[in-house]
């Protein structure tokens, strides 16, 4: 087993597994966030559920671990890959048009997503869980008291000074994530060995659909809030 952990395919195995786990997370997270489009009450109910459901609470540290493993292995693999070229690199490289830009820049895309993630956590998660915010004052929905998470989110994107900036940053983050997924999605299945000439096409198409759905879904939220909230 130690051989497996140190082997290149073993490391990539963990990249794939954690990647696919994060893909599931994205799906859940996006579904929850889309409640924003249905008004404050809808979002607050979902938000309250996510904040109190025991299963979700258990999953939170696992999710964090998934992120960390994905990032650590990515860093490790990338460093190893850069070293593998040797001391003298090529003076001239023409990227062959048939391999996608995203596939060759996954670490950059991932770093962008990570940077965005930090900002995103500071914006919302940190405030809800740690520091608190006056915007989060309790509201009552369907007879149940809960934090007004909607107000916190809406305030960020409708802020007089920085609303537009935040919206653009969030849209940019969604685009980076989408590109990351265009390669990451099918690549995970390839690494797990679940691909051949036929399935490769299917995974790729599915990957693109998923990437644009997730990217588009997340990008719509700031736009919607900016325009309609």
């Amino acid at each position: 087993m130690s051989g497996f952990l140190s082997s290149s395919i073993g490391k990539k195995f963990f990249m794939s597994i954690t990647g696919l786990f994060l893909v599931v997370f994205l799906l859940v997270h996006l579904t929850a966030n889309l409640a924003l489009l249905f008004g404050p009450n809808a979002f607050n109910i979902v938000s309250h559920f996510m904040g109190t459901n025991p299963l979700i609470q258990i999953m939170q540290p696992i999710l964090a671990a998934g992120f960390i493993v994905h990032i650590i292995y990515a860093t490790f693999l990338t460093l190893q890959n850069q070293k593998a070229r040797g001391n003298d690199g090529y003076a001239k490289v023409v990227n062959s048009h048939q391999s996608s830009w995203a596939s060759k820049n996954m670490y950059i895309l991932g770093s962008l997503v990570l940077t965005f993630l930090v900002l995103h956590i500071l914006n919302f998660f940190w405030k809800i869980k740690v520091t608190g915010s006056p915007l989060l004052a309790e509201v009552e929905v369907n007879g149940e008291a809960m934090e007004n998470a909607y107000a916190l989110v809406a305030a960020l994107f409708t802020d007089q000074k920085l609303g537009l900036v935040y919206s653009l940053v969030y849209i940019f983050g969604a685009i980076a994530l989408a590109f990351h997924l265009t390669h990451g999605f099918w690549s995970a299945f390839q690494t797990l060995g679940m691909s051949n000439d036929i399935w490769r096409k299917r995974w790729t198409v599915l990957g693109y659909l998923f990437a644009f759905a997730v990217g588009g879904g997340f990008a719509i939220i700031p736009l919607f809030l900016m325009l309609f909230a």
Binding site: S7, S8, N81, S103, K104
Partner: peptide
């Protein structure tokens, strides 16, 4: 074969398809 490949200093595949 994978173990020998790793030992000889080649990088890891990231499925770029190049």
């Amino acid at each position: 074969m994978v173990s020998k490949m790793d030992e000889l200093g080649f990088g890891n595949c990231t499925n770029t398809g190049a």
